[in-house]
Design a protein around this nucleic acid. Sequence first.
DNA 1: GCTAAGGGAGAGCACCGCTCTCGTTTGAGA
DNA 2: TCTCAAACGAGAGCGGTGCTCTCCCTTAGC
Lengths: 237, 237
Amino acid sequence: MHVGRTARERARAELTREIKDEARRQLAQSGSDGLSLRAVARQLGMVSSALYRYFPNRDHLLTALIVDAYNAVGVVAENANAAAAPTDLRVRWGNVCQAVRAWARAHPHEYALVYGSPVPGYHAPEITIVPAARVPLVLVAIVRDAWAGGALTLDPMQASFTPLLAQQIGNLAATVAPELPQDLLVRALIAWTQLFGMISFEVFGHLVGSVDPSDEFFVHAVERMADFVGLPPSSQG
Amino acid sequence: MHVGRTARERARAELTREIKDEARRQLAQSGSDGLSLRAVARQLGMVSSALYRYFPNRDHLLTALIVDAYNAVGVVAENANAAAAPTDLRVRWGNVCQAVRAWARAHPHEYALVYGSPVPGYHAPEITIVPAARVPLVLVAIVRDAWAGGALTLDPMQASFTPLLAQQIGNLAATVAPELPQDLLVRALIAWTQLFGMISFEVFGHLVGSVDPSDEFFVHAVERMADFVGLPPSSQG
DNA sequence: GCTAAGGGAGAGCACCGCTCTCGTTTGAGA
DNA sequence: TCTCAAACGAGAGCGGTGCTCTCCCTTAGC
């Protein structure tokens, strides 16, 4: 594996990882604003300027953490999806939603880094696109399986799309789910935004006055959105 | 009105307002991280320490801006609701959602300040609770009117609530909509989270790969969520 | 073995939030 | 009307930040 890697290269890779680990540790404690390059360097026993050999500036370090966070929540969602019987679509759906929520609650600052306000002056670089798509792709995969299996409890309707929206959804479908009726893809998108809206409200404290703790509201809403996309009742029930 | 207000008191009130205005100006340009007390003071021709006579620290200034932002979006929602015929529930619903989205797009940094990641170490003080409730209260008001008028297109079901959730919803209903079936209130909550999830995704750039520009997706989703809560078709159509 | 690139240390710049001290101004009560 | 405490602005200063630049040592490839 590490053929041709010199000692210097290995040291660089390792230090890069250590910097990210320490940065993630501080991020988890203090949030992205509290993440200080100087503090990271201090913790690693080096001087702050040395850190710039590995990351050109603070934003690049944050970007690396963002990519890692996207991948972390993506893996969690994929595993949750794979843990259920492939034919039990509703359990898969519920597992994925629960897994994303659990990850968000366990890593609120990383969640905020990714799904909260973008860092000022910061615009998501291309590197984040693929990892960012992992969770929605899992959700779409479930809907695709439901459609392919003829299991959906509602008939997709086509009529009500404006031309531009139909085109946008068509383009999106072409890359992620060509065979899926547009109506279903739109419903999945809506469920996707609802899921993260709900999680964000919980993690950021907007549910405190209404449904907090929100565990039961969450499972209820997830079921309702599973209804909304047309998933059949759990085969196990 | 200003009986008993000394010149000093009036000057203090005015300067406090000017500080907030200038802070809001900088917030709109640079985001909350870019908001600097020193820069605000500089712009106002005073020295930074003088600013601490008016706000004990940066967080208090941010809190004032948060309250203002909640009220701003709340007013916008209330006006949009009032602008439609009271009986045309779906138009009211659509107006409110569109108004909130428009405000968010026009003031992305203020939106991020309120609905994005909470500032590190910052926990929403009580003063924000009432202003924060204005938008959801408008949504609930529409659902209440629909229920009171017998206009809803679906029958609320009661069965599927767990005890804790039923209790939470009951408590919430007691303070905002005592006569509303719990099922309807839950549906409104879900629609509320969907609305802000969708707006956050748009403002924070998470829809770039899928439905962007998202105007038409937004109106479609709003209609779908109006269906979801059971609002009847527009009486004007 | 030489040389160029890689990498750490340190000083320094301009900024930040915040505190403290020191005069000045203001306004309310004696 | 005079007094005196409170309110207020200016300035210096502390410890922190991101980032740059220079210096010097080490490493790796020719």
